[in-house]
Simulated assay, not measured.
Amino acid sequence: MAASYDFSNKVILITGATGGIGQATALAFAKAHAKAIVLADLPSASASASTLVSAITAVSPSTSATFYALDVTAGDQVAACVHATVARFGSLDVAFNNAGVLSKTASLIDTPDEEYDRTLGVDLKGVFLGLKHEIRQMLAQDPQGGVIVNSASIAGILGGPMIAPYVAAKHGVIGLTKTAALEYAAQGVRVNAIAPSAVATEMIQHWLQDPAQREYILGGIPVKRAATVEEIANSVLYLCSDAAGFVNGATLVLDAGQTVQ
């Protein structure tokens, strides 16, 4: 049974909002009666966003939902998204920096420089820019403060062969999370990260459908399955809720025990 949260007075911003985890988290915030949810994603996601807006309205008619076309690697676009959110809804209370890509499989020495730049641009620089502009707004508003959750991965805790750029990016996300948490806690801004292992999203479906790859991915997970997107979403809501008021600078590992073996 999912925990019950109340975000009825909160304005939520989610990047990478139309994908598996982002979509599930948006719906979870709607079920928790969020005041408003801004779905930020690439322009190509506009059709998916329209469907998600309708689903949010069906779940919670009192929740305002809108799509904002955004490239998280462009600082001016991130700043404009935050500004537009506040201009329309009055504040920014919660941000989930979820946009991400998985680097193409290759050994480190065979990874093209362009692939490294692409992956670090979305997965790490995107989080940096999100933090920069979200925190700036949270410090300026009255009342001051807010909550931010960043999407990391167990690849940010463990090594990961054949995906060096992704591993580097996710280690960086955890470092940014700790630093931001230390710098702004006294001003009412909490910053945490989630570190899931395998999650049943479109991003890894092609691997899960291959028996050998499936065994490699799930074999180290004690429960022998991938997480559902709803399980990850519920963890994000916990970190954003008052129930987690003393949780700051933490990385919540969501791996069914994979990293403690």
Rank of each mutant, 00 (worst) to 15 (best):
S48K: 15
S48A: 14
A49N: 04
A49T: 00
A49P: 04
S50W: 05
T51N: 10
L52H: 01
V53C: 04
S54Y: 05
S54W: 06
S54T: 14
A55K: 11
I56R: 03
I56W: 01
T57I: 05
A58D: 08
A58Y: 02
V59T: 15
V59R: 04
V59H: 06
S60Y: 02
P61M: 09
P61E: 08
S62F: 11
S62D: 15
S62M: 08
T63V: 13
T63R: 00
T63S: 12
S64R: 07
T66W: 11
T66I: 10
F67C: 11
F67G: 02
Y68K: 07
A69I: 09
A69K: 14
L70H: 04
D71V: 11
D71F: 10
D71M: 05
V72T: 11
V72A: 00
T73N: 08
T73L: 11
G75A: 14
D76G: 12
Q77G: 04
Q77D: 10
V78G: 05
V78Y: 02
A79N: 06
A80I: 05
C81P: 03
V82T: 00
V82C: 00
V82G: 02
H83F: 02
H83K: 13
H83Q: 15
A84N: 07
A84V: 00
A84L: 00
T85F: 10
V86Q: 03
V86A: 02
A87K: 09
A87I: 05
A87C: 09
R88H: 13
R88C: 12
R88V: 10
F89Q: 01
F89R: 07
S91T: 14
S91R: 13
L92F: 10
L92V: 09
D93L: 06
D93C: 10
V94T: 06
V94E: 03
V94K: 08
A95L: 07
A95V: 13
F96S: 04
F96K: 00
F96G: 05
N97I: 14
N97H: 12
N97E: 06
G100C: 04
G100K: 02
V101L: 01
L102G: 05
L102V: 10
S103L: 10
S103T: 09
T105N: 06
T105M: 15
A106R: 12
A106P: 12
A106V: 10
S107G: 14
S107N: 14
L108M: 14
D110T: 11
D110L: 06
T111Y: 04
P112W: 05
P112Q: 09
D113C: 08
D113W: 09
